[in-house]
Amino acid sequence: MDDFLWGVLPYLCIASLVGGTVWRYRYDKFGWTTRSSQLYESRLLRIGSPLFHFGILLVFFGHVGGLVIPESWTEAVGVSEGLYHFNALLFGGLAGVCTLVGILILVYRRRTTGPVFMATTKNDKLMYVLLVAAIVLGLWTTLVSVGAGSEAHNYRETVSPWFRSVFFFSPDVASMAAAPIQFHIHALVGMALFALWPFTRLVHAFTAPLHYLFRPYVVYRSRDKAGASGSRSGRPGWSGVGTTDRDRQR
């Protein structure tokens, strides 16, 4: 059982995440959007949405810090386990609460505002359930750790090595299996969320427009150059017949 959960399932999720994203990007660029509902309602959105999004960004960076960076590295720069743990619980807890409050506001808004609720698909509902579950379970692990005080389980000796080992194709099943139950459930729900990710509106996160900071303000695009104009590239076997006019343009 442990072998399947922590040795096989992660790869199924990664396959779904990567394969699904590639597939969606190739075949459904038009559906790749935030599907913003701000036009319908913006008073609650203006509080809930930034709270949730900034919160989840912090949570994301927190996870990167906790899962990707080995404990030996942080100790090498002089951060003791106790100090690290205190910081992680404090800031992680704060970010988690922000995220949870944000998403609760958003879900409340979605349920009570008529037009927003009408624009909610079944897909969205499933996604919301998983997302809220992942956040709640994440906070639960934090709470349990806080409750246990110095006795708290050090997930950087169990979950993190397993997480890294997955990417080296030699999953450290035993480490993960040794972690307490709350980490197991949180990880499972997280994997479900990532498996489903490409098929929900969450894909918009993959096109976070950071390149906006670097691109020129005015975008010129030729209608002439095949391929330069987005999704549709020339089909093999259908190269155009050269004409003088076309050649002059090139």
Binding site: K29, F30, W32, T33, T34, R35, S36, H204, T207, P209, H211, Y212, R215, Y217, V218, V219, Y220, R221, S222, R223, D224, S229, G230, S231
Partner: peptide, 28 residues
């Protein structure tokens, strides 16, 4: 166009018509 984070809005070089690339717009 300058406001578009995705760079989906563009001006056609040939005739200056400003269009939204529906495949690149992400609804920001």
């Amino acid at each position: 166009m300058a406001s578009c984070p995705s760079g989906a809005i563009y001006k056609r070089e040939e005739d200056g018509i400003v269009l939204v690339d529906q495949d690149r717009c992400r609804g920001w």
